[in-house]
Amino acid sequence: MSATADWSKFLTVGERLLWEGRPEPGFVLKPSTVLRLLLASFFLFNAVLWWKVSFAVAFALLAGGVWLGEKELANLFLGGRRRYALTTERALVMRKRPLGGVELQGWPITEETIVTLDDRQPGHVSFGFEPVAMKRNRQVRAVGFDRIRNPREVYELIRQLQRGEA
């Protein structure tokens, strides 16, 4: 995927692109990510130990290790391949799918949308919530544009959009 994505075929009549961007390269290792990856590598290490003794146990450990680490690794290494855009109607998040195809999330921006700003360099702007895996009924996580260069500018754009000024 090139630096700027082709959004035109996903836009409807009367919808204009206000901003487009991508996550800044690099990543921040959160304590939870480190813990998870440590646990995953512990599983994989044990899988190697069990390999000669019992193939079935080794396979189960391997599967467990992959299951534990797969999401975090994909986020770390493929997260940068996401593309972001803001239109006059919604916020778009585009990402390539591992088995081909493109996933396009279209988060509508209405007057009621809760928008948050993490004003750092790079910072975050969120406009939606997603249930946290394994705690689906109890905990939600703010989702939006991660690691963007000019979060305050994008935040202001969304606020203008909500006031009907864009």
Partner: peptide, 12 residues
């Protein structure tokens, strides 16, 4: 509704 999120998985 205006707040309904619509995702597209583009492919064949």
């Amino acid at each position: 509704t205006p707040s309904l999120r619509i995702d597209l998985i583009d492919g064949p």
